[in-house]
């Protein structure tokens, strides 16, 4: 009986706080994506010739994001019936976009115009890695192209 109560309390906490943090995170992602739109992120290997005179440097952004208890339960139910696991989709979407935003922020501090050859790297973190998805780390990296002051 006590176990059931603990389970329900955790479920409710996960649902409440998880929802809250997700909607807050999405709001901040939308806002910052608008603000950083000027720095183009391109997954092309070799930049076009107009960037031939630019300086280049590696930039990266990473984030570790955790699932909430509610999502873990929903996803394990989903494992029985199969199909789309929406709970994890939104988690990974947030993590990827956040990683890109942090990379763009680093690039902006360097005064870069664009970021070329962007690559993603995703890994599971922590001792929960064996059991299921505990938390994920997403790393985004690429080469920022910075205009030389003397090239103009």
């Amino acid at each position: 009986m006590i176990e059931l109560i603990v389970f329900l309390v955790l479920l409710a906490l996960g649902y409440g706080f998880g929802r809250l943090s997700e909607s807050r995170h999405y709001r901040s992602i939308f806002q910052r994506e608008q603000a950083l739109r000027s720095i183009a992120v391109v997954p092309i290997k070799i930049p076009p010739p107009e960037y031939l005179r630019h300086n280049s440097t590696l930039v990266s952004g990473s984030v570790v994001i955790s699932v909430d208890y509610f999502k873990t339960v929903v996803a394990s139910l989903r494992n029985i019936f199969g199909g789309r696991v929406g709970a994890y989709e939104s988690l990974l979407d947030r993590a990827r976009r956040e990683a890109i935003l942090r990379m763009q922020e680093e690039a902006r501090e360097l005064g870069a115009e664009t970021i070329y050859n962007v690559k993603y790297e995703t890994s599971r973190i922590g001792e929960n890695a064996a059991k299921g998805l505990g938390s994920v780390e997403v790393l985004a990296y690429g080469t920022a192209l910075i205009a030389c002051p003397d090239s103009k």
């Binding site: 706080f17 990266s60 984030v63 994001i65 909430d68």
Partner: peptide, 23 residues
């Protein structure tokens, strides 16, 4: 702390810092 975060969800700032330091 990460165990708690697995209940509430959200970013694990400590891990993010640790991993970028190691990188």
């Amino acid at each position: 702390m990460a165990g708690f975060k697995n209940i509430f969800g959200g970013e694990l700032k400590g891990y993010t810092e640790l991993l970028s330091e190691s990188r």
